[in-house]
Amino acid sequence: MSTRLIGISAVVFLSIFVIQESLVSQFRLPGGGFSILIIFALSWAIMSEREVAAVIGFTAGLLMDLSQSSSGPFGQWTLIMLLASYGISYLGYGDDNFFGGAIGVVFSIVLANLLLEVMFLISGPLLGVSIGSFSRIFFTLLGTSVWTLFITPIVLPLFAKLHKSIFQTGTLT
């Protein structure tokens, strides 16, 4: 990746992070809401090569750890996002990709979002994070999945265009 690509991507990442922290976080949405940063990172990861996806996940996770409302130790989201982005890219990149088409990408992002929440829940208690009652966890997982399913199709075309204009690869059919 060239310095120019890294610079432009960093600006895009920071902008999405500021939108998440200052705009999306204003709303106490029923069911827990969504994270625009997670949707963005996963959608970019799915359109990128594996090593780029790993860097995308690492950067997104680092920003999520920098968020003051992140409850786990610093680095927990970095690790989870890194693994999730690498995994989704492993399955999604190339002509023989696992998902095929925009609808497949949307559902894979929702599934990946759910899986990384579960990874957080599993790793959280090991690192001393309190996670709450079972019913609360269930409704949060359900709520965030529904919100992600609702928001992803709206923002995916924009994220795909951004990705294409920066990396010159990764179109959705």
């Binding site: 922290e21 976080s25 003051q68 992140s70 989201w77 994070v129 709520g143």
Partner: peptide, 14 residues
Amino acid sequence: ISQGSYQSFAQTVT
């Protein structure tokens, strides 16, 4: 001025 993120299962506000 801001609600906390639900992604970390924490309940915070700023």
